[in-house]
Design a protein around this nucleic acid. Structure first.
Lengths: 212, 212
DNA sequence: TAGATTGTTAATCGATTAACAATC
DNA sequence: TAGATTGTTAATCGATTAACAATC
């Protein structure tokens, strides 16, 4: 991929849309669509064609005037931009319903996540096999991180333990944290954090229903 | 609550922040905090105090000059704005790992959701008890909606069935749809849809890790 | 009263859209 | 070539922030 030198700061609004581009391009590639114009793709996605072209221009020039975009090529570009080609070693901390849902999520391994171990602090769960792995005590988390190359830690614990776990993950050398606890956690300059509060969606739905 | 007449169109950026306000105010109310200034609250939340006051001003005047805000009062206001005081009858469609995680989510009943029935289309699952209810075949969904007052339908099916299920829910008279399928679904002028693609968070994390 | 802090106005900043020259 | 569609510039629109008069 050619990263264009003059245009390095990608607005966060653009980054937020990248997963959507990825999803649509993957679906189209799988359907065997060879080629598409920004107009047609943007209509499918309910955005303007200006926005689509503007967004893509932060990363390079991928289309051809008078022709449009080659779908499989643009899909590969999007995978590359997002860093999906890589395999990421992952640990899950917190094996309640939410944790189980996350590691069983079907897009998960498709996107290059490889679950290396799962941890919980409930002795009742120790040894139970989830995703082909026995649940380990959280007390062994740090040691595990020291002995294995782990890229991503997923937190699916209650709110009050989330930041503590995050700090163990950071000390243990992960590069990214995906946090599902209702309490946002903090990373640092080397560790990226993505806080996903899916409960917020319910409240937005309530709001919409009340004010519709 | 006093809705201020001149200022009716609430920007979507503001609506997106309401769940965050709700979370922080609930946590503070539970901790017994009586009073807080926009400065202190905004610092806790990593936003500016201007933004906090500006956001609240769309809904009314809830503070006092020289004093700040009464936390429990502001919490109740936020619940009211979001429509949390109500009980919402709910059905879940799709009882895989994701569906199970959603209905077992602890903030769920706290926020007034009452699960009335759960549906799936896998005969193997029929009758299995989840959340105290036996799983019913999806073929009975429409009938159930006709015979019961259901406010919200939650979709946790694979992408390809999502829109079909949404249409049954709409015909059946729900007022809101919370969709977790990777395919966004469409509502109409009477039915609000909230699409939650939690997989997108993983891709944003990948992006951050690659470009950090 | 004096100090603190609100709600709001105006200025700034960022994101979206329209328009079009370049060119396949 | 003629038609289509890109990438980019400039204009518009919306969101955030700074500043302050009002007032508890």
């Amino acid at each position: 991929m050619i990263l264009r030198p003059g245009k390095v700061i990608v607005p966060s609004a653009v980054i937020r849309r990248l997963p959507m581009y990825y999803r649509y391009l993957r679906a189209m590639t799988e359907k065997g669509v060879e080629r598409i114009s920004s107009k047609a793709l943007s209509e499918e996605m309910n955005i303007t064609s200006s926005q689509l072209r503007q967004d893509l221009s932060y990363f390079g020039e991928f289309g051809q005037q008078g022709y449009g975009y080659k779908v499989p090529e643009l899909y590969r570009v999007m995978c590359d931009i997002l860093g999906i080609e890589k395999q990421y070693g992952t640990v899950l901390v917190g094996v309640g319903n939410l944790g189980r849902a996350i590691i069983n999520y079907d897009g998960f391994s498709k996107r290059g996540l490889e679950v290396m171990a799962v941890f919980d602090n409930k002795p009742l769960l120790y040894g139970e096999v989830v995703c082909g792995m026995p649940i380990k005590p959280v007390s062994q988390l740090y040691e595990f991180l020291c002995n294995n190359m782990v890229d991503i830690g997923i937190i699916a614990t209650p709110a009050k333990s989330a930041q503590d776990i995050a700090e163990v993950l950071i000390k243990g050398g992960v590069k990214g944290i995906w946090n599902f606890a209702p309490q946002p956690v903090l990373g640092n300059e080397h560790v990226v954090v993505e806080n996903t509060h899916f409960g917020d969606g319910l409240l937005k739905l309530f709001y919409g229903m009340k004010h519709n």
